[in-house]
Structures are given as C-alpha cells and as structure tokens.
Design a protein around this nucleic acid. Structure first.
Lengths: 115, 115
DNA sequence: TCACGCTATATATTAAAAAATATAGCGTGA
DNA sequence: TCACGCTATATTTTTTAATATATAGCGTGA
C-alpha cells in the first residue's frame, strides 16, 4: 500500500520559513502554551523545536512565537497574532493548492506502484 | 534579500516519488541521453543520480527511465513515454498550484524579513 | 579482440542533520 | 529563599545523507 500527499514548503534564504512541520509545531504551541510541551507532544526534542521557532521568528519580519521566561509555570510560549496570520495564510495556501491539483494528483496516484 | 518559492513534493512510502530535483533530473536525462551525463550537468554524483532514478522507477508502476548497457556509446538512458507522462503531469501540478496560490504567496512574501 | 563509456553495485569516507546531554538564568508561589 | 518548570544556549554523541572510490559487466566499433 502506498499513500500519496503533497508537501508545500515556503523557502527563504535556503531555509524552510514555513512548511508542514513548522505549521504543526505552531498549532501544538497554540494548544500547549509552551515550546517544551509542544515538542513533547510531537515526539521532538526541545532543542529542535526551539530551533524551528527561531528560524520562523527570524525568517519573518516579526516573531510568530513569543516566549516568557520564569513565572509560576516556569515560562511559556504562545503564537502571536502575526504568527496566527501566517499560519492561517499557509493553511489556506495548502487547501487552495490541494483543491486545484486534486485531479492531477489522482492521476499520479493511479500511476504509483501499489506495494 | 530573500526570495521565496514553493516546493511541491509527491511523497510515497516515506520517499519522494517526484519533486523538483527528480523532475530536473528527468529533464537532464532527456537532454543528455545518459544518467552519468545528466548527473555531471547537475553537479551531482552518478551514484546519487542513479539512486534517484531507482527510487522513481520503483515508486511508480512502470519505469520512468529506461537504460541500455553496452553499445557504441557504452550505454545510455532515456525517459520513457510513461516517464514523460509523469513529468508533464508533475509540471502541470506545479503550474496550476503556483497560479492559484499566487496572491497568498505574495502576501506571505510581504511578511518575510528582507535581509 | 580489445578499448571505450556507460550501467550497476558495493564499500568506505566525509559532511550534514538530528538527538542527547548539560547547564545557566528567569520569575512566580509556597 | 528556594524549588519548580520553562526558555536559552553550548557541547557532545548518534544517526543519516551525500560523496568518493573501486570494480564488474555489457555491447558496439575500430
């Protein structure tokens, strides 16, 4: 059995400014309220998650994620209004693109080996 | 300065069945008539090019590239009719997708840091 | 028949990416 | 004031990807 799916990445300066992984991470941060909890929920190391957040924050002209150090819960992170705007825009890109190439993808799917 | 572009990959069995790199390689093979010449023209090792061809041939239910061993020119490779069909379909997917998300991409472009 | 240039494949080396580990710093609340 | 949990960062280790190198085999044409 072989499934097929498209993967849309926004490249900037030889780095992935936004892609499926970073979009998921943003959603996990929204849900969990911290980078470390988001990373854990995705089975990802904190360092990697932090690096991805760092790339996002540096790729765009404003942070997508804001962080807080210290406090009752030790700190935390949240997706900024700007981050949500980027995330929404990205998900819309995915939806629109996938919708318009649906037929061609089906045709390619039929050409794939089924093992 | 930062440019932005989308990258559409067709995943199958945790491998990239078709993407920008493999599409370029197919076009280079079409042009050069061999895997080794195509690889050289792309600054890629023969082994890597052969591996990519192998992945393509195994991902789909028929070879995209056919090869010839021996002969006057030592052998060679060419994109099959099926391979051309897949390539054409992929390029069409890219064109249609990029066309429909043009506005959203411009919006995201404007959000990118300009360094 | 033999040199040529390509495919095909194996192995070893190098480079890059990811994960693991460690540590410092912060601010709240007990 | 001190433990807690998170951010931030550095360093090391492990894993993965890519390159380099080597070798066998093939069929044509000189």
């Amino acid at each position: 059995m072989s499934s097929i799916h498209t993967k849309i990445q926004l490249m900037s300066n030889h780095q992935i400014a936004m892609g499926p992984g970073k979009a998921c991470l943003l959603e996990a941060i929204q849900l969990k309220g911290s980078i470390s909890a988001a990373a854990a929920s995705m089975g990802m190391s904190y360092k990697r998650a932090w690096d991805l957040v760092n790339i996002m924050n540096n790729s765009f002209n404003a942070p997508l994620v804001s962080t807080l150090i210290g406090g009752s819960k030790g700190g935390g992170a949240q997706v900024t209004a700007f981050g949500l705007q980027v995330l929404t825009q990205y998900r819309e890109v995915e939806l629109k693109a996938n919708a318009v190439i649906k037929d061609e993808i089906s045709a390619l799917q039929a050409m794939l080996a089924n093992d």
